[in-house]
Design a protein around this nucleic acid. Structure first.
Lengths: 215, 215
DNA sequence: AACAAATAGTACCGTACGGTACGGTTCGGC
DNA sequence: GCCGAACCGTACCGTACGGTACTATTTGTT
């Protein structure tokens, strides 16, 4: 059951924050138990007592940070078309900002680098506690928009994935591979606006009940 | 200058193929010099003579495999609208098939896992010899299509990135994180068709010269 | 046949790192 | 003030791995 989060003591959170900094700055290679102990002013013995082993520490880092993914739970109903569009644009900007951030990139690289192992628990953690939450938030918004006739009423997951593709395209992949996110905030805003325009073009509100917006 | 590829001897290619198998099956952790030497029936000394050090071996693996990215250089002109669309669908299917493949995923994971290092040569290698080639091929196709009036004549790079986003969405990210590509060939074909439909909706041929297809 | 170059196989070295043990210190409970 | 738990800091251990050295064997050349 995992009880939705044993969480950690404040001290342990401090240590995890230090460990996260190491990962962000130097990648997985920099995350040795000795380095964490030194950076966090704690003993290796404590690390092992708290997190079991190195893998447990990695998992704790990801879980700790992913738990900070707080999606704003706003009321999406009774939105005008323009307000709905504004919500989508904000979502797009937030998504780009998060994905281009040091922390997100570092944790994704960490989890992806370990994903060859069977089970790939880090990847699952990131998928379930990071991406899934964001996707859920967006789906709620999209379903509300559909209910109010702002967009075509189709499968929210399909619609969300299309929206994601239009917003992110291949940028995340390029960033993960080391290409600098040259995007300024203004660029992100422009990208967000354009992708939402495109999304609304593909899912126009007038479609009566056809499941395929572009068929 | 790098002379577009010093390439390797047949024997060295054999060794690189063995090394690639190790990476695909066990990730970077499985790629120890001893394991490569054992798997390829060669000596560690030869490995170091040929590839310099472990990083050189990694780079050689990526370069070797990336050099196999052979984009079909077809004649894209004098295509009917339906033939042009068919080309796009084929491209989409090929892209999904490649990205979902074991080898691509393993090499991307490898390069991404190392991308924290400054310079991230593996990432650059993959970007320049893999993604860039594919993008170039697609851009040529798109420019031809635009020249023949099959799609709106806009910046080919922008159009390609949108096409990529519509085809791949967040699937690549999920796969990289360890989620199984549940897609069968039929699923890929359906996805390819739908994404091309969406793309053609966003870049309709009738637009005279507006740079913004959805603005 | 003689020789040189390349290579397989193995043994070896140094180090870095995961994990453990231990002494000294702080801190809360009684 | 006393005790035990938790914890820091450090020292320590075993191993795995990157990289090197050496020998035996093959291969190609003259």
């Amino acid at each position: 059951m995992t009880a939705t989060g044993p969480e950690f003591t404040p001290r342990q959170n401090e240590v995890l924050a230090s460990a996260l900094r190491l990962v962000v700055e130097g990648g997985e290679k920099a995350l040795t138990t000795a380095a964490v102990a030194r950076a966090a002013n704690c003993s290796k013995e404590s690390l092992y007592r708290w997190f079991g082993d190195r893998d447990g520490l990695l998992a704790a880092i990801v879980a700790h940070q992913a738990s900070k993914v707080r999606v704003p739970h706003e009321n999406d109903y009774q939105l005008s078309a323009s307000a709905f569009r504004e919500r989508l644009v904000t979502f797009a900007e937030d998504l780009l900002t998060v994905l281009a951030g040091d922390t997100s990139l570092a944790l994704n690289r960490l989890a992806i680098g370990q994903a060859s192992r069977e089970g790939s628990p880090l990847g699952r953690l990131l998928l379930e506690r990071g991406r899934l939450r964001i996707a859920t938030r967006a789906r709620v918004l999209l379903e509300a928009g559909a209910a109010q006739g702002h967009i075509a009423a189709v499968d929210a997951t399909e619609a969300y994935r299309t929206l994601y593709g239009l917003i992110v395209r291949d940028a995340h992949g390029r960033w993960l591979l080391g290409q600098e996110p040259e995007g300024t905030e203004a660029d992100f805003a422009a990208r967000a606006n354009l992708s939402v325009d495109q999304f609304l073009t593909l899912f126009p509100p007038d479609a009566q009940d056809t499941g395929h917006p572009a068929g």
